[in-house]
Amino acid sequence: MSPLRHEIDVRPAQAVAALLDATGERVTSVIPPGYEAYIRVLNPIQFRDGSVVSWTDAVLRSGVEPRAWMQWPELVAVDDVVLPDGGVEPDMGGPPVARATHLIEALRPDSGVHYFASWAGYATEISEPYVAFSPYQHEMVLYSGRLIDDGGAPLVPTTATGRVPMYWWPSDHRWLVGQDIHARSLIVGCTQTVARTILESEHLDAYPISSSDNVRGEEF
């Protein structure tokens, strides 16, 4: 885990917000346009003992064809999908620590400072200064920190409340991770090379998507 530094100078967050599509609910409203590839990474179904199962595995075991934009409420409502006994619905607004670790490994960040944004509305979260991010104009607080230690091992970013932030990006914007506060998945904008690494990871439940796809709300 890597505690983050709260930033008063919000210009790095303003730079990201200015790139987001302010109208509609497309992928480019969450992640800026212009990346070679866009990926949706699904948070796993969790069990009380700490183990997890991916959405894809659960759907395939039920004989149903998985798809990139499958939604948790839809899976619960489909008679043909048999969800694992004792499984708990995926977290909203942030990935589990283990999945965040594997995503960091796939992103291959350098040892420099990265930026992070977390919703100001979380209980006990720092609330200002903030920058409004589309598509819902949520008030986002800026943090900074590292994603790998001196030995290259992943450092999972956390705010003072212990939350993994909703947005992560390096200063050069070569990739960007983002999500809505109610999302049970992450969206990543990146190069084709990084996209292949994410899609080929046995630890990440990920699908290629298009920048023009609509992002449906997951707070049913």
Rank of each mutant, 00 (worst) to 15 (best):
L75T: 04
A77M: 09
V78R: 13
V78C: 03
D79P: 05
D79W: 00
D80W: 00
V81N: 01
V81E: 10
V82H: 11
L83T: 04
D85Q: 04
D85G: 00
G87H: 01
G87T: 11
G87P: 09
V88E: 10
E89G: 14
E89N: 05
E89P: 04
P90S: 12
D91T: 13
D91F: 12
M92Q: 15
G93R: 00
G93T: 12
G94R: 02
G94E: 02
G94W: 01
V97A: 11
R99C: 02
R99N: 06
R99G: 00
R99P: 00
A100H: 02
A100K: 04
A100T: 10
H102V: 00
H102F: 12
L103D: 03
L103F: 01
I104F: 07
I104N: 11
E105F: 01
E105R: 13
A106E: 03
A106T: 07
A106H: 02
A106S: 13
R108K: 13
R108D: 14
R108C: 14
P109M: 11
V113A: 06
Y115T: 07
F116M: 05
F116P: 05
S118K: 00
S118R: 00
S118C: 08
W119R: 00
A120L: 01
A120V: 02
A120Q: 13
G121L: 04
G121N: 12
Y122M: 09
Y122V: 08
I126S: 02
I126K: 08
S127I: 01
E128Q: 11
E128W: 12
E128N: 08
P129T: 04
P129Q: 04
P129K: 05
P129D: 10
P129N: 06
V131P: 00
V131W: 01
A132H: 05
P135L: 10
P135A: 13
Q137L: 12
H138D: 13
H138N: 15
M140W: 11
V141Q: 11
V141G: 04
V141L: 12
V141E: 11
Y143F: 14
G145D: 06
G145T: 06
G145I: 06
R146M: 11
L147N: 05
I148C: 08
D149Q: 09
D149C: 15
D150G: 14
D150H: 03
G151Y: 09
G151H: 06
G152S: 11
G152Y: 07
A153N: 15
P154C: 10
P154W: 05
P154M: 14
L155V: 12
L155I: 08
V156S: 06
T159A: 13
A160G: 06
A160M: 08
T161L: 09
T161Q: 15
T161K: 11
T161E: 15
G162W: 07
R163Y: 08
P165G: 08
P165C: 07
P165T: 06
M166C: 07
Y167N: 12
W168F: 09
W168S: 07
W168I: 04
W169I: 05
W169S: 08
W169P: 01
P170Q: 04
P170S: 02
P170D: 04
P170W: 03
P170A: 01
P170M: 09
S171P: 03
S171Y: 00
D172T: 07
